[in-house]
Design a protein around this nucleic acid. Structure first.
Length: 778
RNA sequence: GCCCGAGUGGCGGAAUUGGUAUACGCGUUCGACUUAAAAUCGAAUGGUCUCUACCAUAUGGGUUCAAGUCCCAUCUCGGGCACCA
């Protein structure tokens, strides 16, 4: 007896797709293009998890849907391979990050193929391959040439025991993640990208994007535009958004890092102020957050309030941040809660604001919360910054013809105790000659987000050897039509917009926004509703689900059925079984005993399938295989419309539920060949292997079915009759009568149940043809 | 603290423009098939109640012929930001 055997069907089709390069995108096609991508993954040693599967399947459903619809689809794949896990693994085991990464990529690729994704494998990219990072370095130099990559002294986490720089995520509650000792801040020269140069445009262009409001709001808040004024209090400039409250300003507060403090202290206050500043600067942001209790010291100096002409004291406090505005504020305790708290603690005057200045004060000024993007990483496993220093310590770009600056092979991957990455251990590599001058290479590498800030453009021409991206390919494919991911709401999605605007200004991209539509998917949690984690032992391995016998089609369809794509969902093993049952029913319709082992149902039954009559019913009900042609057509067309509309609006869960309804109905009324072909086509984006098998058996292609409006209109319609908004009767009338309100009213009023609730003449009658509803007000 | 989002059966969820609340799936129950079980197929399944009636979409108000959907207030949960002047 035939049985649905997903694993056999899936390996068969995966081989066919692989052998035929089935998903290769055509760079010159005249068909309309669709370019879709997921946020490319960091290939961890653990392999794919169910969250990846959700993310990638959404893209796959859309990619397959659009190619079935006749679009020229580009659906590439890549790996974000630089990063700390590989480096830490290397430090621990001595295995080179390159070797470990290659293994992980290979594993990911095999797993992706087991899921049947419609990926154009000829476009695979990998950010740690020299042919890729050569162009990341080129991007850096473009920014450098325009002054948008620059160096600045900045504080960096430093572990005094390990003698090493730490990344933010390696600091846990102010302690080194490895040795547990308290970390310090160390002032070091660091590279930055001047993203703030684009703050205004990044903000104003957000609104027009077809992105979730949540992400748009987060980006806006992150950029954090404030319009205010700068006002001089003698030689101290403050920033305020409320210049109108200046009559209430009773003291000034400077950030501990403020450069003027040293000039303001007196012999009496110097020691105390210096001590305070030193401690405040050393404090981590976490500590500043934890301790909201106001602290501060008086500098000993006074400034003049330009409005009241009064002398007001100048204080230093760590609740004022050097990185925002001017690093100095006028404190208005009567108007600002923080200033009030500070004034109360230190007994400073609180003066009600009785007067508003007649003329606007100071210079209008706009500031942003967003800071420039710190890109220096003192790490080995990253893209080397293509810079060298001359004997005076001045930076020079590595000439373009010397790119890529390759990552040197080293034995020991630990950063050294000078705060430099392991690159500093490659002594030969460090030396470089530029224009005849011997120089020393930069040992910092780039933040991984730099590598992912341009990969979407590389996808258009991933093997282009003469440029980061080929102009023709960019013009054809870009910008990206649909991007899907569940992370990086601000960082990556802001950086890629920043680079896009920069390269557009350079004339290298013909658009100013890189991503037209964003689908931001939710997480998949463990069956207990908690986050999956190795330590909790509640991880569901997607490959286990496949190999348990459910197969990739069930896994994919289940993850699309689990709930709205943008909401978090908990894994439910029983529901996986339900989806498997559904696919099994689909299979049975075409291949089951009732369908006959050879040939389609239509061939066997001369038009109508089932299944019908092939097995006698044993449930005592009549076979309804002779259901009328119009109602059969109505069902089919209704389903095509529903599934099409649902995929378009990314409602994958309801698309699948309407396919389930369709199948349930076909079991009752029998399936025609057209029904089965339509089912196969509609099912293919979700369960491509099974659907391909069905369509092959039925001798059909996979073109997306069209629906015909005329079949959606049934010959009879059901009218809802309400009394005072409550359902009291349902009327079945010929469709033509929908226009005839008088007749419907008459029918409704003659219904005995309606008469019970409407004893006399109704006070008011509302008829809504669109909703097929009549409401009588009694 | 501020800014978003959400709250619907035993469970996941559906209801797209204010118009039949609970689609679809899980679970449960019953039936068919079977020596039996599994699988499969069919039926039932919000609550109260014998009466096809009343009550139910977090809570309390409101607007409307009509509210899960709109407005106001409250509670709970989730996410983001967190001394940004």
């Amino acid at each position: 007896m035939n049985r649905y055997n997903p694993l056999a069907i899936e390996s068969k089709w995966q081989k066919i797709w692989e052998d035929s390069d089935a998903f290769k995108a055509d760079d010159t096609s005249k068909k309309p293009k669709k370019f879709l991508a997921e946020m490319f993954p960091y290939p961890s040693g653990a392999g794919l998890h169910v969250g990846h599967v959700r993310n990638f399947t959404i893209v796959d459903v859309l990619a397959r849907y659009y190619s079935q619809k006749g679009y020229n689809v580009l659906r590439p794949f890549g790996y974000d391979t630089f990063g700390l896990p590989a480096e830490n693994y290397a430090i621990k085991t001595g295995v080179s990050p390159k070797v470990a990464t290659d293994t992980n990529v290979k594993n990911f690729r095999n797993q992706l193929k087991k899921l049947g994704y419609a990926i154009d494998w000829s476009r695979e990219i990998n950010t740690s391959s020299p042919e890729y990072y050569k162009w990341t370095q080129w991007c850096f130099l473009e920014l450098y040439k325009k002054g948008l990559a620059y160096q600045k002294e900045s504080y960096q986490w430093w572990c005094p025991v390990d003698q090493t720089v730490l990344a933010n995520e390696q600091v846990e509650n102010g302690h080194c993640w490895r040795c547990g000792s308290e970390v310090e801040k160390k002032k070091m020269k660091q590279w930055f990208f001047k993203i703030t140069a684009y703050a205004d445009e990044l903000l104003s262009d957000v609104d027009a994007l077809d992105w979730p409001d949540k992400i748009k709001t987060m980006q806006k808040n992150w950029i954090g535009k404030s319009v205010g004024a700068e006002i001089n209090f003698d030689n101290i400039t403050v920033f305020t958004t409320r210049p109108d409250t200046i009559y209430g300003a009773t003291f000034l507060v400077l950030a501990p890092e403020h450069p003027l403090i040293k000039d303001l202290v007196t012999d009496k206050t110097r020691k105390e102020v210096e001590e305070y500043c030193k401690n405040a600067i050393k404090k981590s942001e976490i500590e500043r957050q934890e301790n909201k209790e106001k602290t501060g010291v008086f500098t000993g100096s006074y400034a003049t309030n330009p409005a009241t002409k009064e002398k007001i004291p100048i204080w230093v406090a760590d609740y004022v941040l050097m990185g925002y505005g001017t690093g100095a504020i006028m404190a208005v305790p009567a108007g600002d809660e923080r200033d009030r708290e500070f004034a109360e603690k230190f007994n400073l005057p609180i003066v009600e604001i009785t007067k508003v200045p007649e003329t606007p004060f100071g210079t209008p000024k706009t500031t942003y919360r967003m800071r420039d993007w710190l890109i220096s990483r003192q790490r080995y496993w990253g893209c080397p910054i293509p810079i060298a220093y001359d004997s005076d310590g001045n930076p020079h770009p590595i000439p373009e013809d010397q790119l890529p600056v390759m990552i040197p092979e080293v034995e020991d991957f630990k950063p050294d105790n000078s705060g430099r990455s392991a690159l500093a251990k490659a002594t030969d590599w460090l030396k470089v000659t530029i224009d005849g001058e011997e120089m020393t290479r930069e040992t910092d590498t780039l933040d991984g987000y730099a590598c992912s800030s341009w990969y979407l453009w590389r996808y258009a021409s991933p093997h282009c050897a003469t440029a980061a991206w080929d102009e023709k390919a960019i013009n054809y494919w870009e910008p990206l039509d649909i991007y899907c991911g569940g992370d990086h709401a601000v960082a990556h999605l802001l950086y890629v917009r920043f680079w896009c605007k920069f390269f557009a200004d350079e004339g290298k991209l013909p658009f100013r926004e890189p991503i037209m539509k964003l689908l931001y998917n939710g997480y998949i949690n463990a069956p207990d509703g908690k986050k999956m984690s190795k330590s909790k032992g509640n991880v569901i391995d997607p490959l286990d689900v496949i190999n348990d016998g459910y197969g990739a089609d069930t896994l994919r369809t289940y993850e699309m059925f689990i709930g709205p794509y943008d909401q978090d969902a908990a894994w439910n093993p029983r529901s996986v079984g339900g989806v498997y049952r559904f696919l099994n029913r689909c299979w049975t319709l075409v291949f089951g005993d009732g369908a006959g082992a050879n040939g389609s149902l239509a061939a066997q039954h001369g038009g109508y399938g089932r299944v019908l009559g092939a097995e006698p019913r044993n449930d005592g009900r009549e076979d309804t295989g002779d259901v009328s042609e119009p109602s059969r057509k109505a069902l089919l067309n209704k389903t095509v419309k529903k599934v099409t509309d649902d995929i378009e609006r990314a409602a994958f869960n309801t698309a699948i539920s309407s396919l389930m309804e369709y199948v349930n109905e076909l079991y009752k009324v029998g399936a025609s060949e057209e029904d089965l072909i339509t089912l196969g086509k509609l099912l293919k984006p979700f369960a491509p292997h099974l659907a391909s098998e069905m369509l092959e058996q039925l001798n059909a292609d996979d073109t997306w079915p069209e629906y015909d409006e005329k079949y959606l209109v049934a010959d009879t319609v059901e009218i809802i009759v309400q009394v005072n908004g409550k359902l009291r009767a349902k009327l079945n009338v010929p469709a033509d009568d929908l226009k005839n309100q008088a007749k419907i009213e008459e029918l409704a009023l003659s219904d005995p149940n309606v008469q019970k609730f409407v004893p006399g003449k109704p006070k008011k009658i509302i008829y809504v043809e669109r909703a097929k509803l009549l409401n009588l007000v009694a």
